[in-house]
Design a protein around this nucleic acid. Structure first.
Lengths: 155, 155
DNA sequence: GTAAAACCTCAACCATAGTTGAGGTCAAGC
DNA sequence: GCTTGACCTCAACTATGGTTGAGGTTTTAC
């Protein structure tokens, strides 16, 4: 019996099948597996076999990555999906809502930054201690643990 | 003559001075120098001395980084500033406008992504070949050279 | 039954954006 | 004039997100 061109709808997929159908490299699928983003069953000969659901999972990973979410966070989010059964539409929707909120926050911060950049065009940008871009504490201080201006300075 | 607490307004700054006043680590300033983002003069004893303008330059770098622009692009943009004279307000403003446009584009793409995520909550997300998130070509295809879905597949 | 294609693991490497430490020099302050 | 802090270079290491290649095994196709 030869390998069918289209793996049977209930059947499993080889890593190459998943690569072709998802558009990611085989090496990336291996990598995702080491990071716990996807899982595989193994044949007697130790080759990976994936249930078809992996395609959706990989698609979700790629979309989440486009939003700028790091793989580790994606992994955490995916880990919250139910173990035994295939995820339902509502499971995926819940995930989407989480990421949407993060995306909203990123958009909010970038918009604020853009508007400040706009304001600062009028002042020659960044030259004065009143420039909000020089004082990230005010509006953007909650975004991370980066270095801070220790000495506001009118240069 | 002892080292003044506040380097004279026309004087040069040591790498430690710049680090304190800009809030970035000395190692980062070294790193920026290797990448051509900043330049320094050297004393007889090979120590770095910076004109005060470096403070604004570093501030600009940090702001640009907040927008998500990679250092290599920041370097290119800074390289377009005039060589001989100190940059004018208009020079900085031109830079701001460039980055504002890039920021606008990033915001546009993220907003589109968020809205698509919103639409897809209703469809269980990513399950159908009609889902725009599964077809990045349509709206987001111009964003890079990433992998593409080679086979649209209703899984 | 055999050759080729696909697969396996593991280690090394790429880029980005830095930090850390070793080993040595310079300069500021007393 | 000497101690101490600041500085120097260079190499190695961190983390993220992968890719590449070596050396060997499995599966498929004829």
């Amino acid at each position: 019996m030869s390998k069918p061109d289209f793996p049977a709808p209930g059947g499993t997929l080889s890593v190459g099948d998943v690569a072709k159908r998802s558009g990611v490299a085989v090496s990336t699928l291996h990598f995702y597996e080491t990071k716990g983003l996807i899982r595989s069953l193994r044949t007697e000969g130790n080759q990976r076999r994936y249930p078809r659901g992996v395609l959706r999972r990989v698609a979700v990973i790629k979309v989440a990555q486009r939003t700028g979410i790091p793989l580790a966070s994606i992994q955490e989010a995916l880990a919250k999906l139910p173990e035994g059964r295939a995820p339902t539409a509502e499971d995926w929707a819940a995930l989407s809502r989480t990421w949407q909120a993060e995306l909203d926050e990123r958009i909010r911060r970038l918009t604020q930054l853009r508007d400040q950049l706009d304001d600062c065009i009028g002042c020659g940008c960044l030259s004065l201690k009143t420039c909000p871009l020089r004082n990230p504490r005010d509006a953007l201080g909650a975004q991370g643990a980066g270095p801070r201006l220790l000495e506001a300075d009118a240069d």
